[in-house]
Simulated assay, not measured.
Amino acid sequence: MKSNLKMFYVLTSLALIFGFIGACGGAPAKQPPQAVQVKSADAPQTELVKAPAKAAAPVTLNGAGATFPLPVYTEWIQMYKSVQPDVTLNYQGIGSGGGQKAILDGAVDFAGSDSLLKDSQYQQMPDLQMLPMLAGAVVPIFNLEGVDNLVLDGPTLVNIFMAKITNWNNPAIAALNPGVSLPNEPIIVVHRSDGSGTTEIFTSYLGAVSNEWVDAVGVGKAVEWPADQIGQGIGGKGNPGVAQAAQSTPFSIGYVELAYAKSNNIPFVDMVNVAGNQVTANADSMKDAMAAFANAFDERLTTKIVNAPGKNSWPIMGYTYLVIHLSENTDCDKTAALLGYIQWAISDGAAAQKAADLGYATLPDAVHDLVMNKLHKVTCNGQPVL
């Protein structure tokens, strides 16, 4: 009995000693990586990726930019709290232009943008990297009492926003909407008042349809709207501002990301696409457009996907991107936490389903792989992070 007690005391003492050494000097043991299903909201995937490693210490990541993805980013941030309780993510929807300025000024850890960075911005900060996160449809919304369905084609939409078509009962609109009672009322054009990636997507489409639009108005985050010059234009800040202005302004037409139209129950236009078919913005028409441009990414991992040639393609589409630093990272905990979040957002099945429920299109497999490859090139203090 004494022998057994002696052995018990020896073993207990050794356990306490090694436990003390581990607590004082050793790093926390890494948990084995868990496998998570890769992203598709439509069908089961067999490919597995490593789940984000648990944060070694609490980390706060601040981002700002595009309002285009704000609904899904808000949901993802809430969902990610259960995946990484020690990572706090903040994202402000201030517009793509504001997000680009913020990351160039060093005010945020990452930016959101639907607008592509300019060469001058890459020259100012050469390590910036745009990462496609989702794609979405920009839809023309309208406020016409008694009219629930409206069809437009590219040339007619261009002429409305060029203020060449200024009344709702114009013959060009009437020809596309037989049997619809269109009022003899002026068209009020609602547009963004801030620098906006949604505006860049929308004006890119108008420019793809009309060279006159390119020459007279232009393509970009902000343009001079012809409707303002004739007193039939209203500006709204962010997608929420345009949605609110259109809802409160009779006889108006505007443009927002599809999620804003759906969440606010605002009717949106069906478009006649370049193939000559009437299409509505939904999961199938977005996927058709993305497939048409599957191999169109440039060396910067960016592309435009407007006016897609597919038979059922929605014509006003765009990717939304996160802008991060590829190499000039010095806080490695923050960098690792950011990459973990991005990996989760584009790879997790629940995240993909939430995006689909809100009206966004998740990345095709080939684009997902391009983003993952780019994440593995991110460095902190000269060392790979993943």
Rank of each mutant, 00 (worst) to 15 (best):
I253L: 01
N239R: 06
T379W: 03
P85M: 12
A175Q: 12
P171T: 09
D365M: 00
K287G: 10
P69R: 05
G382T: 08
L11C: 13
L11S: 13
A56L: 11
L338Q: 11
L131P: 03
G318D: 04
A243Q: 04
I17T: 13
V385F: 07
A337E: 00
Q247A: 12
A292S: 07
S204T: 03
V209W: 01
Y205S: 09
T88H: 09
L5Y: 06
A23V: 09
T320E: 02
K262Y: 01
K2T: 05
S248Y: 08
L117I: 15
K374T: 01
V138S: 04
P240K: 10
L157Y: 10
W314Y: 13
M133C: 01
P126H: 06
K287Y: 05
L258H: 15
D114C: 06
K287N: 15
W168H: 03
Q129T: 13
G112P: 00
F8P: 08
D357V: 15
G19D: 09
Y319D: 01
F110L: 08
N277L: 04
L70A: 05
P309L: 04
K54V: 11
A261L: 03
P267W: 06
A227N: 07
L116S: 06
G25N: 13
Y73C: 08
A172F: 09
A27T: 14
F251D: 03
L370N: 14
I165Y: 15
D114R: 15
L152T: 11
L182M: 07
S113V: 11
I188F: 02
G276Y: 13
P32W: 09
G146A: 00
K101C: 06
P58Y: 08
G254N: 01
